[in-house]
Design a protein around this nucleic acid. Sequence first.
DNA 1: CGGGCCGTTGACTCTTGTCAATCGCGGTGG
DNA 2: CCACCGCGATTGACAAGAGTCAACGGCCCG
Lengths: 225, 225
Amino acid sequence: MPFMIAAASRALPPAAAGKSAPLRLPDGGSIGAIRSLSKDQSLYAEGDSAASFYKVVSGVVRTCRLLRDGRRQIAAFQLPGDIFGIEHGNRHRFAAEAVGDVTVIAYRRGRLDTPMSSDDGLAREAMDAVVAALERAERHMLLLGRKGAMEKVATFLLDMAGRVHGSVIELPMSRIDIADHLGLTIETVSRSLTHLERDGTIALPATRRTVVIRQMAALRRLEGL
Amino acid sequence: MPFMIAAASRALPPAAAGKSAPLRLPDGGSIGAIRSLSKDQSLYAEGDSAASFYKVVSGVVRTCRLLRDGRRQIAAFQLPGDIFGIEHGNRHRFAAEAVGDVTVIAYRRGRLDTPMSSDDGLAREAMDAVVAALERAERHMLLLGRKGAMEKVATFLLDMAGRVHGSVIELPMSRIDIADHLGLTIETVSRSLTHLERDGTIALPATRRTVVIRQMAALRRLEGL
DNA sequence: CGGGCCGTTGACTCTTGTCAATCGCGGTGG
DNA sequence: CCACCGCGATTGACAAGAGTCAACGGCCCG
């Protein structure tokens, strides 16, 4: 029962425009191929062969799962630097789609599938990514199962602020994506944001995808923990 | 930024009664210590040093996280054979508690923390466990975020039936634990079960912890996917 | 300049949570 | 062996939070 682990570069190659160009790093090892996707294009679908895993270079990727009737849960948003798509079997159990225009590096499951060489400290990064993903997943389960709408939105804003390192957040995704990530409807997300704005906790400039955090402490109180 | 990986035995030692006895496997390698816990005893709490990870020998362990005000989310139930408690940092981010009486093996984070030797195929089992946990976590997020009460309970019963390999399920946990796993209240869990019983989908013998699945197909239809 | 899409807002519905009472298994002690 | 007791589970009545449906508004793009 093999699992997918392979080397991951720590040096981020410059974003390339090519559709799927082979990539060589300074050390000469051929380790990945650049792939560019445009908004809403799918990187892989549920059930696709999991021959590669990916690292985001620029843009945002959503990994999501669907119910028969179309209900959708976005497990996570993958931001630049994030690694995702590592699978246990040989099929992807999730779909991955571009939220906006995206560039990723595709790593072949490759030579590290069976032997995990110790000096190859590179497998380390992939393992790190899986453990980090599990950590986030566990936190997110608490949010989905036990938090109310306001708490969910507050947590989301704090999370995004943390990942962007600033209190002015340029949300890369639509309200639908946010709703499907938080287990809410777009209306409830919208109402929660409006409510936070009336509180003075955040500001919502005319440009609809921007959120400015005015009172970080108030958000943290709302977070629940 | 080290992560916790160490060897895991594939041969399951016999359950021991001792509180924390050193263990030696046939091959002579000292790999873990047996630990026994009684009902509701905690194996580790959120924030505890993560010097070990664990494998369930007998009984069931719940891994859970709390909100300030006491709301609780059980991320997963660990059944015999399951490995859990592998962390990215050196602190546990979750609490782990015995659902009933439990025996686990504790593995030291140990020698495999830094060098992940390839021939040591044992690290493999731990990696497998993390990827499997992530897979379950992702499925569970879909349940928590997008399924209704009946769908949640149906999914839970199918899951338990699958792990026990039978249509007669001896639930090892209380309604509260089920509710905190599914993001519901005990009342809603109870009502859902009663409703399924009236349907003829399941039977609920007088002994309160037993569920008999009568119509697997009906449950699958309810599952949503 | 016009149209479409995304987001907001409002009115109403409905699922699920809350509060409270009762049931009944399972364990204890007489 | 039987009666009692306590806790977990069930059931009911009601409240509340979030979803649904629908209309409107305003960016953004052609």
